[in-house]
């Protein structure tokens, strides 16, 4: 706890010295923003609403990445044919940072939202805030860690487990459900954890782009333009806290299913 206190003290020292909230607000100003999460900010809604919008986008994009990434990873890890099929594309796409896709996604999907796709006309619906372009980049950011870790998990299943199952009468389907899947689960969960972290980073960047109208990234950009540095810094702290909570949730799930792996000889 000593380091955060030192950082806060340095921050406070310079804030008092500059005496300019548009450059560096004082710690208590930012803190005051944080303990009033339901106050309307710059006519855009409160913190809770912005967090909710960002989190919903991330959760939808991330689930999409998991739904596509895990089965494809299982196939590519188990069958050489699929591995050969996917590998060249993956090797080219992988080093391409998801943030580099944001302008492309904006150009293609413009500001269409999930609501437009399904033709629903609720003005209050949360789906109104899930832009297809954002969904795409979150999906892209989450997909690779999930996909690659799943492949790794499946291809490192010990042959002795597979053969033991076979001589105990396991069929092909049972082999997949009872051996391959549980054995690669720790690696899959690692992929989910990393993927969720990447998704959360990407969404903040995506929300800073033009056409965005809500979300914690949008709030950062908007408060920057109005020189409301206390809101900006409070938003940054919130991003860190929410990110920690998200990875904490996956970590709990991971620890429960991979307890055996750490102790395996």
């Amino acid at each position: 706890m000593i380091l955060p206190v030192i950082i806060l003290l340095i921050w406070e020292y310079y804030a008092v010295k500059f005496n300019n909230p548009a450059l560096l607000p004082r710690v208590e100003m930012v803190f005051d923003r944080l303990i009033h999460p339901f106050d309307n900010l710059l006519n855009t809604g409160n913190f809770v609403r912005h967090i909710f919008v960002s989190a919903t986008r991330v959760i939808f994009g991330f689930l999409l990445a998991a739904i596509v990434g895990i089965p494809l990873g299982l196939l590519a890890g188990r069958y050489l044919l699929f591995h050969r099929l996917f590998n060249p594309i993956i090797e080219i796409l992988r080093p391409l940072c998801p943030i580099a896709w944001i302008p492309f996604a904006l150009a293609i999907f413009k500001t269409y939202t999930v609501t437009n796709v399904f033709g629903v006309r609720y003005s209050t619906s949360i789906f109104e805030h899930i832009q297809l372009g954002m969904l795409f980049v979150i999906f892209y950011g989450g997909f690779f860690p999930i996909f690659i870790n799943t492949i790794h998990g499946v291809s490192s299943v010990k042959n002795s487990y597979v053969e033991s199952a076979l001589v105990l009468g396991a069929t092909h389907g049972q082999l997949f459900r009872k051996i391959i899947l549980p054995s690669s689960l720790p690696a899959i969960l690692t992929g989910l954890k990393v993927g969720l972290g990447v998704s959360w980073m990407v969404i903040i960047a995506a929300e800073m782009m033009p056409g965005s109208d809500a979300g914690i990234g949008y709030l950062i950009m908007f408060s920057y333009e109005l020189a409301e540095m206390d809101i900006l810094m409070a938003s940054m702290i919130i991003i860190g806290v929410v990110g920690t909570i998200l990875s904490g949730i996956v970590k709990v799930a991971a620890d429960q299913t991979s307890f055996w792996q750490a102790k395996e000889r």
Binding site: S164, A165, I179, P182, W260, E264
Partner: peptide
Amino acid sequence: FQQYSLFPWR
């Protein structure tokens, strides 16, 4: 098998 064939997650 000689050893380590039990499924460690079971």
